[in-house]
Design a protein around this nucleic acid. Structure first.
Length: 870
RNA sequence: GCGGGCGUGGUGGAACUGGUAGACACAAGGGACUUAAAAUCCCUCGGCCCUAGGCUGUACGGGUUCGAGUCCCGUCGCCCGCACCA
């Protein structure tokens, strides 16, 4: 038999052209079938795709193709997360315009994605830097502004005085700018914020409805939102504070420990601290020191608890005879609660550390179970577990929960300085989302600053506020700021000369609604509500775990905000979420410690040990640990090289084999070759079947045992693979397909000697090819065509397994004696429990084990197992 | 520190709601074909014992159960997230 070797390059290009010419993957919004929206997190156009993309898009494509075969109207779009800093960095380094750099990269990556053979609707493609996209984003911003979801306030930023730019936290390394190395300053700027905090409770509660999200991500979001219930309490100053305040307001989650209060703590940024510092040089010095430490994370972590006594005193709310000192302390955060606390050292570790340092009283008020109230003392560790309240007057004997309520009720009823002394309050860790970026390559914030009218939104008809092309990066700072004319405009309100806002939006804004835009990408409003409501939520969203918090939380907020302004009508954008693992690879280092690329290495075997040498020089190379593929460690493999050598199907198949999709996968040359051999093997098998059998021939009438065995295997595999694909268990599906290929190969090599067997083999081949199709679409089309089907497999519907073939006529029961397997029993599936028992007792080895006695117990689990207890 | 997850052959990993541990693949070893190589095909492949066969084995130590990789308690190790959140 002269079967040609499968030529992936030629075959893949051919089928891609066919799909493209026939618009097979173009989706119609008006298609009446049930919808299914599959989306992979869109890529940043860095210039080249990497293996992580291949894995991500291969998975999404399997889902898309599978659902299409199952009869859904599938939306599977692709776009580009195209704004952001790398384009500006490239502009500075290589004198290339950010726009040119970005669009060139997009063009290159689009070609790379196309050779993967993904079933994408390219007609919906857009980049977030397209004017048509950010115009609509500006429109959304203005609607949010109108609805009170956007506001301005002062906020601190990390300012690099050399680059004259704002830095993100991760760009500050040891208190210095990552690029310039200059000491970073904290500056106050007026910035734009989205009121995500309006939705704290809703975002938290709705997490419970996201039952097709990984628990891990749900938990991370819960922690991020960080809800805590507590009490806001006003402590009366013994004498009025220099700010004129008569009371000090604090937030606590432990009002039950109020009788253990030892001192009060103020954040260094608290208004009272700041006011006092004006006349107290020591305090000023202390506060300045706290701020300097503020930038380095490590310093914060290790910082000793420190403080300074303000001399101010407050009265204990439950016992006016007690006066508590007020300290400014470095461990108190201004932006949580009220920036002030009452400290109970006995039951809070931070407070205890502080109290020990300054020799303040430590009075335990919660007694551990079984402890003796007379002798219980706190050492170096605060007691934070459950217990009973003591040393606390009217609270004595209560549980912590009861005491919390009792204190709240009592203080709510007391009036201090005209208001209740306390009120219950729920606090969240989640802060509002600052979106201002002092950068060029982002979506301009469409507002105007007018001397007369203040901050004025741009008029809708004047949109877009377009980025100017004539900019340069010769000088540090934001090019929009120093552009000669771009800032100049007229006030939409009074018509007088005014200045544009030069800040642009955080790129997380761009990615917070792109999934909605895909549903009607050309629409003249941000969304077409009927299209958005029809397609959303995304049924299956797939991407990296690194976006578990910010991107997903912002998108959830945006969906709510869009609902508020009528752009669509739902709360949760992503019904199913899947976070895939990373692609990793072995690392290599030369003798002088340089990282080496896998492409420059030769591996061989020596006495069972793998040894590596540098291919060019023959120099010894040490094989290092397996790490995430990264440029810095040079352990990357270029997908394009792999696809050139083996074809897209092989790369896709390997990415889906072996490792569970949520776990990291190790890229190995051997693994790819294994996948490649499988491609060839399938092609040989299908070719042989196509040559030796006729389509739609053979008869079920004279099916024999061998044929039936093949049919059973095919139908069982179909049922299992359908289930696996439904639950994204790609590695399990792959294993089952290997098994089926083994079964069919064996059957074919034994000869197709009856029309019943011919039918079975032909059917199994069709099933095999169809099940492979979502994962290796080109090979599947080629096989499908070789099997003389006249449609495209990409348009064929998923086969249905015959339930009657899923169960065997006989069951093989493992027979255990005292829980240990000793043999097996083959018996009809229909056999009654009694029949199984009788047959078991008749077995030789059972008889032997019983040695004439009757069994103590005989357990028969139907269709499963038998256990004889002797 | 707090929260979460995970520990199965030489390797990646299977094992449904407790029911034959190691499917499938990779690597390795042996064989067939070939002048040779590649490709392909066949066999072996957790450990121990001399075989039939048996013993043992899912990080470690206990427990529940007729039966535990799976459930419970404790220990050790690794990974991830958060990190002075009052």
């Amino acid at each position: 038999m002269a079967t040609e070797r499968y030529n992936a390059r030629e075959v893949e290009a051919r089928w891609q052209k066919t799909w493209n010419d026939k618009d097979v993957f173009v989706t119609d919004n008006d298609d009446p079938r049930e919808k299914y929206y599959v989306l992979e997190m869109f890529p940043y156009p860095s210039g080249r795709i990497h293996m992580g993309h291949v894995r991500n898009y291969a998975m999404g494509d399997v889902v898309a193709r599978f659902k299409r075969a199952k009869g859904f109207n599938v939306l599977h779009p692709m776009g580009w997360d195209a704004f952001g800093m790398p384009a500006e960095n490239a502009a500075m380094q290589n004198k290339v315009h950010p726009k040119d750099w970005t669009y060139d990269n997009i063009a290159a990556m689009r070609e790379q994605l196309k050779i993967m053979g993904l079933s994408l609707d390219w007609s919906r493609e857009f980049a977030t830097c397209d004017v048509s996209y950010y115009t609509q984003q500006q429109r959304l911003f203005l609607k949010f502004l109108e609805s009170g979801l956007v506001y301005r306030k002062n906020a601190k930023v990390n300012w690099d005085p050399v680059d004259m730019t704002v830095l993100a936290n991760e760009q500050v390394i040891d208190g210095r700018g990552w690029r310039s190395g200059a000491l970073v300053e904290q500056r106050e700027l007026t910035q734009w914020f989205f009121k995500i905090s309006d939705y704290s409770e809703d975002l938290l509660e709705a997490i419970d409805t996201l039952d097709r999200w990984p628990d891990k991500v749900r938990l991370m979001q819960k922690n991020w939102i960080g809800r805590s219930e507590g009490l806001r309490v006003r402590f009366e100053f013994v004498s009025t504070a220099p700010t004129g305040d008569k009371t000090l307001e604090i937030f606590t989650t432990r009002p039950d420990t109020l009788f253990g209060a030892s001192f009060m703590g103020l954040s260094p940024d608290h208004p009272i601290s700041v006011k006092l510092a004006e006349t107290n040089p020591d305090l000023k010095e202390f506060i300045d020191e706290c701020r300097r430490v503020g930038t380095s994370e490590e310093a914060i972590e290790k910082a000793e608890k420190k403080g300074i006594d303000t001399g101010l005193r407050v009265k204990h709310p439950l016992d006016a005879s007690i006066e508590l000192p007020v300290y400014v302390a470095n461990f108190i955060l201004m932006d949580y609660g009220t920036g002030a606390i009452f400290a109970c050292p006995a039951h809070d570790q931070r407070d205890l550390d502080f109290a020990r340092k300054y020799d303040l009283p430590v009075k335990p008020v919660v007694l551990p179970k079984d402890a003796d109230p007379a002798s219980f003392e706190i050492g170096d560790e605060a007691f934070t577990d459950d217990g009973t309240i003591f040393n606390s007057g009217f609270l004595d004997g209560m549980t912590i929960g009861d005491a919390k309520n009792a204190v709240a009720e009592k203080l709510e009823a007391i009036q201090v300085d005209g208001t209740a002394q306390a009120e219950r309050q729920v606090n969240y860790r989640l802060r509002d989302w600052g979106i201002s970026r002092q950068r060029y390559w982002g979506c301009p914030i469409p507002v105007i600053h007018c001397d007369e009218c203040g901050v004025v939104p741009e008029k809708d008809e004047n949109l877009p506020v377009e980025l100017p092309d004539d900019i340069n990066f010769d000088k540090p700072g934001n090019p929009l700021d120093r552009h000669p004319t771009w800032r100049d405009t007229t006030c939409p309100n009074c018509g007088k000369p005014a200045k544009r806002e030069t800040d642009t939006m955080d790129t997380f804004v761009d990615s917070s609604w792109y999934f909605a835009r895909f549903t009607a990408p050309g629409h003249d409003q941000p969304t077409d509500p009927s299209a958005a409501n029809g397609w959303l939520p995304v049924d299956q969203y797939i991407g990296g775990i690194e976006h578990a918090i910010l991107h997903l939380l912002y998108s959830r907020f945006f969906t709510r905000a869009m609902q508020k302004v009528g752009a669509l009508d739902l709360k949760e954008p992503f019904k199913g979420l899947f976070t895939q693992g990373m692609v990793t690879h072995e690392t290599y280092k030369s003798a002088d410690g340089q990282w080496l690329s896998p492409a420059d290495i030769q591996i061989s075997e020596d006495n069972g040990n793998r040894v590596a040498i540098e291919a060019a020089t023959g120099a010894a190379v040490s094989i290092g640990s397996i790490e995430k593929m990264s440029k810095s460690k040079k352990n990357t493999v270029d997908p394009t090289d792999i696809i050139d050598t083996y074809g897209a199907d092989t790369a896709r198949w390997f990415m889906l084999s072996d490792s569970p999709p949520e776990r990291d996968v190790i890229w190995t040359e051997d693994g790819v070759q294994g996948a490649w051999r499988f491609v060839q093997r399938v092609w040989r098998l299908i070719s042989e079947i196509a040559e030796n059998t006729e389509p739609r021939s053979g008869s079920l009438q004279d099916i024999d045992d061998k044929g039936l065995e093949v049919r059973r295997a095919a139908h069982k595999t179909l049922a299992a693979v359908s289930k696996d694909l439904e639950s994204l268990g790609f590695n399990r599906a792959v294993a089952k397909l290997y098994e089926l290929v083994n079964t069919i190969s064996k059957a074919v090599s034994e000869g197709i000697d009856s029309s019943g067997k011919e039918y079975a083999v032909r059917e199994a081949a069709d099933f095999l090819v169809q099940m492979m199709a979502p994962m290796m679409p080109h090979l599947a089309e080629e096989c499908w065509s070789a099997l003389e089907h006249d449609n495209l497999i990409s348009e064929a519907s998923w086969p249905k397994a015959d339930d009657s073939l899923l169960v065997d006529d006989t069951v093989i029961y493992p027979i255990q004696i005292n829980g240990k397997r000793r043999g097996e029993l083959t018996i009809s599936k229909e056999a009654s429990k009694e029949a199984v028992e009788a047959a078991t007792l008749a077995l030789d080895f059972v008889q032997k084990a019983l040695d004439g006695n009757s069994p103590k117990k005989l357990i028969v689990v139907p269709q499963r197992i038998v256990n004889v207890v002797v």
